[in-house]
Design a protein around this nucleic acid. Structure first.
Lengths: 264, 264
DNA sequence: ACCATCTCCGTATGCCGTAAAGTGATCCCG
DNA sequence: CGGGATCACTTTACGGCATACGGAGATGGT
C-alpha cells in the first residue's frame, strides 16, 4: 500500500527551503547575537542524512530516531532544526531535485529537448525512488523543484505553444515521467525483494492466474491479447517502463507539435 | 509526505481476490467440511468496513483496530481472514474498482469513448481518493481492476493502433488520469483541512514567496509568466486539474489518432 | 466422551512521532 | 565577575501502530 498524506505546514516549509542556502541573515528576533550553546548541526546535514537513509533503506525505514542516530545524536535533537518529520520530508524532496545541468539544448529541436528533460527527471527518480512516495500533487514549494519546472518551461517556450496547450502539456509530461518511473522503481524493488527473476515472477503469476480464473481469456480477451503480444524475452521492468515512457512521450509530442485543429 | 510501500504477498492476495466471489469451493485442505466454530465475519465485510473508514476518514486513519471496532470485534479477529494489513489494502483497491458500466460506446468515435473511460476513472478516484495512495505501479492483480483495463482496451481496439503504440498509450492514459486525480484530490483535501479558500491560500503563498525570494521573477521567468497567465477567477483545484486532464487527453489523442509518421 | 481443529481474544513486543520537562552551556548585562 | 536569561540538547514518557503468541472455548468427527 501507499501510505501518504499532506505535507507539513507550508509556511514553515517554505521558510526553511528558501532561506536554507542564503547567507543566513540575522534571524535573531530582537537583535544581538546569541545566548546559549552553539548549534552542533545544520538543517542541510539533517536533510542529507535523511536522504542517505531513504536512498539506502527506503522511505519506510526513515525515522527521526534513525536520522538522529546517523548524526550521532538523538531523535529529539532534530526538532530544534525541523518542526516535524513532515517538513523534513519536504526538505528532502526539494534537496533531491538540486544539481544537474537543468538546461536542455534546443539545437536538436523541441522534441529532443523535451526528451532530454524527461530523461533527466527519470534518472533522478530512479536514483531517489522514495521521491515517488512523496506526493507531487501540490504546489511547487522549493527552489530546486521550481528549477526543474523552469527548465521544462524554457524548452517548451521554444515550441511557441498557445497558452491553452502549455499547461496541460506540463502536467501531462510530469505525470508521464512520474508514473513510468514509479512502475520501474517498484518493479525493480519487487525483484530485489523477492529474489526471483522477472521472467520467473511472471511465469508464476500467470500460472496462478490460470488456476484461479480459468475463464480469464474469455472474460478479458483484450487483456489476454495484449499480454500475448509481449516481446519475447525482455521482462526487465525498468526497460519496459522506459519504453512505455518513450512511447508515451512520442504520442504526446506528436499531439503537441502538430497544428492539427480538428475539433473533437 | 507520502508513506507508501509494496503490497502484500501477491500469491495470497490473488487467491483472496479471485476466490472471493466464486461460490466458495471446498477449500478445506484434506477434504471434509469443518471442525471448530463458524466464522462470524466474511472477507467482504472486512473489506467494505475498511473502505468505509478510508472513504470517511482517510487512509491514515485506517487501522486494523479501527476496522475491527467497526465490525464489533477486535483487530486480531481480522487476521483469521486476511494475512496482514497490506493484503487488506490490496483487496480494498480491487473492490473499489468494482461496479459501474465498464462499457463505453464507440458511436461518438474513439476520442469520446476514451474520454468517457477517463471520466469514469476520474470519478472513481475522486470518490475514493485513498485509491491514489495505493501504488498502481505493479501488475494488475484483481478482477475489477482488470475489468477497468479491459474496458479501455476494448475502446482502443477500435482505433486499430499498431502494437507499438498501444502499450504506451495505455500506460500514458492511466498515468494522466491518475496524476490529475491526485492533484485534484489533494487540493480538495488541503482546502478542507486548512479552511482557507483556494484563492486566499494562493495569495498568502505568493506573498510569502516574494518575501523569501524577491528575485523569483528573475530566477524563474518562465514560471512567473505561466503563473501570470492564470485565468482570472478560477482557483478551484478540482476544476483546474480536470481541465489539465482534458487538455492532456486531447494532446495525447491527437498524437495517437494521427497517422503522422515523421521520424523523430 | 474424547480430541483435533478452528475462531476469536488478551496480552505483549517493538516500533513510531513527538510532548514535556530537565540539564547544562553560553552570552548579556550589571 | 556574578547572576540570570536563553538556548541546544537529553531523558523520559505517552499514545498509537501492526502483529506474534498463547490461551479459551466452540465445534464436529470418531
Amino acid at each position: 500500500m501507499t501510505l501518504y498524506g499532506g505535507q507539513g505546514d507550508p509556511a514553515r516549509t517554505m521558510a526553511l527551503l528558501w532561506r536554507a542556502h542564503s547567507p543566513a541573515g540575522p534571524d535573531t528576533a530582537r537583535g544581538r547575537t546569541a545566548p546559549g550553546p552553539k548549534q552542533g548541526l545544520t538543517v542541510d546535514a539533517i536533510v542529507e542524512a535523511a536522504i542517505a537513509i531513504a536512498d539506502a533503506d527506503g522511505m519506510e525505514r526513515l525515522s527521526m530516531r534513525a536520522v538522529g542516530e546517523r548524526l550521532g545524536t538523538s531523535a529529539m535533537a532534530l526538532y530544534t532544526y525541523v518542526p516535524s518529520k513532515r517538513e523534513l520530508v519536504d526538505l528532502m524532496y526539494d534537496h533531491a531535485h538540486a544539481g544537474r545541468p537543468q538546461r536542455y539544448p534546443l539545437d536538436g529541436g523541441v522534441r529532443n529537448a523535451v526528451r532530454g528533460w524527461a530523461d533527466g527527471l527519470w534518472d533522478r527518480y530512479l536514483r531517489h525512488p522514495w521521491l515517488l512516495q512523496v506526493s507531487y500533487a501540490r504546489p511547487v514549494l522549493g527552489p530546486h523543484e521550481q528549477a526543474v519546472l523552469e527548465s521544462l518551461l524554457a524548452v517548451l517556450q521554444a515550441a511557441e505553444l498557445p497558452p491553452d496547450r502549455l499547461r496541460p502539456a506540463v502536467s501531462a509530461l510530469f505525470h508521464l515521467v512520474r508514473g513510468a518511473a514509479q512502475t520501474a522503481a517498484e518493479g525493480r524493488a519487487a525483484a530485489a525483494a523477492t529474489g526471483t527473476s522477472d521472467q520467473q515472477w511472471w511465469t508464476e503469476r500467470s500460472a496462478q492466474l490460470s488456476r484461479l480464473a480459468p475463464d480469464f481469456a474469455q472474460r478479458f480477451p483484450h487483456s489476454t491479447a495484449l499480454a500475448g503480444s509481449s516481446s519475447t524475452t525482455d521482462y526487465d521492468p525498468v526497460r519496459q517502463a522506459k519504453d512505455a515512457l518513450d512511447g508515451g512521450l512520442r504520442l504526446l509530442l506528436d499531439g503537441l507539435l502538430t497544428d492539427s485543429r480538428e475539433a473533437a
